[in-house]
Simulated assay, not measured.
Amino acid sequence: MGGAGRGVNQERDDGRVNRSVTPGDGRARRWAGQRAARRAEVVEAAMAAIAEHGPEATTEQIAGRAGVPRPALYRHFDGLEDLQGAIAEAALGLYSEALAPVWSPRGTPREMLVAAIAAHVRWLAAHTELYRYVLRAAGVTTAVTDIRHRIADRMTGLLTGGYPGLPATVAAPLAAGAVGLVDGATERWLSSTDPLPLDELAEHLARWVWSVLDAALREVAIELDPDVPLTAG
């Protein structure tokens, strides 16, 4: 009889014996699956607690929402930073999903800008407290920066693909500046006591970004029509 942790002999279809299966394998897989599911449940509860209590939501409030004692949170997370990282990962995943107009743009340049900016503003308006929590959370600044870089890289690709005369050395900082403009204006809008209507803000931002793009393209002798679809070069 095999002791604990020893391999279990199993006959394979070809008649030979497979000694690689251990009794603990199934239990380990089940435990890993249960732990992942419980982590996801806690993260979901944490996002609800943050929406209710704001970005200063405490671990006690998160635990209360999850229906567990505070010490039990750390049965599933390796400390506060791991918990914050999991919350940030889930939040940024939702944000990325909402940015479908960025990843799969359609229409004219003007339509693409309005759709992408409106998607960004709407998500932040609907998840303001979660967004602020992510910005404040320790150890997740890189994740926020990464998604901003992805957006800028996507815009750079659209610019260089649609306007071959525009060098990447110009397109990349131009796209990063446009992303920064939208980010900064939206964050200020979220803090305003008398904000513009959301759709009006998106329209303004689209016009401002377009003005910057148009000026930069004209510097390299590219004139464009914002109402004519881009064509790959």
Rank of each mutant, 00 (worst) to 15 (best):
V140S: 06
V220H: 07
A72Q: 02
R70T: 13
V182L: 01
H127I: 02
P229F: 01
L198H: 11
A40Y: 05
A88M: 02
V140I: 09
D225H: 01
M1Y: 15
A32S: 10
Q84R: 13
P173Y: 02
A172R: 11
Q10T: 15
L217D: 12
Q10K: 12
T145W: 01
G26L: 05
T142M: 12
A40W: 05
E56D: 14
V43Y: 03
A125S: 10
T141L: 06
T156W: 04
A137F: 01
V182C: 07
S211F: 05
R188S: 07
R75Q: 15
A4W: 13
L113V: 05
V68Y: 03
R30M: 13
A175R: 09
L130M: 12
G177V: 10
L80V: 13
W189E: 12
E81V: 14
V43K: 05
V170S: 01
I87P: 12
R35K: 08
E44M: 11
L92Y: 08
A215C: 10
A90Q: 03
R188C: 13
R188V: 14
V182G: 06
L198G: 13
E44S: 04
A49N: 03
L158K: 03
Q61W: 09
L135F: 03
G93V: 09
R150P: 06
V68K: 05
W210F: 11
R106A: 13
L83N: 09
V140W: 00
P101G: 11
R70P: 12
A143N: 11
R75V: 14
T160R: 08
W189F: 08
V102Q: 06
W210M: 10
E203K: 11
R132Y: 04
G85T: 11
Y133G: 04
R106Y: 08
I50A: 02
L205D: 04
A88F: 02
G233F: 05
V102L: 10
Q61Y: 03
V228N: 08
A175K: 02
I147H: 04
G7P: 00
P71S: 01
G157M: 04
G139W: 01
L130G: 09
V228E: 08
N18G: 10
Y131D: 03
G184D: 09
E219W: 01
G85Q: 06
L80N: 01
G93I: 01
V8M: 06
G26P: 12
Y95Q: 07
G180A: 02
G162M: 04
G177H: 00
A66S: 03
G67M: 06
M155H: 07
D146F: 05
D13E: 15
L124K: 10
A206M: 00
A125K: 11
A126P: 12
T142S: 15
E41A: 08
A185F: 05
G64I: 08
N18D: 15
A175W: 04
P101M: 07
R150H: 10
T231W: 14
D227C: 04
P197E: 13
G161A: 07
D199G: 10
P69T: 11
R27A: 14
L213H: 14
G157C: 00
L83W: 09
F77Y: 03
D78K: 13
D82P: 05
V228G: 02
N9S: 13
V17E: 04
T142H: 14
T59A: 00
S104F: 10
V17R: 04
L135R: 12
L174K: 01
P71M: 02
V179K: 05
T108N: 03
R154M: 02
R39C: 06
W123Y: 14
L181C: 03
A72I: 00
G79L: 11
W103S: 10
S211P: 01
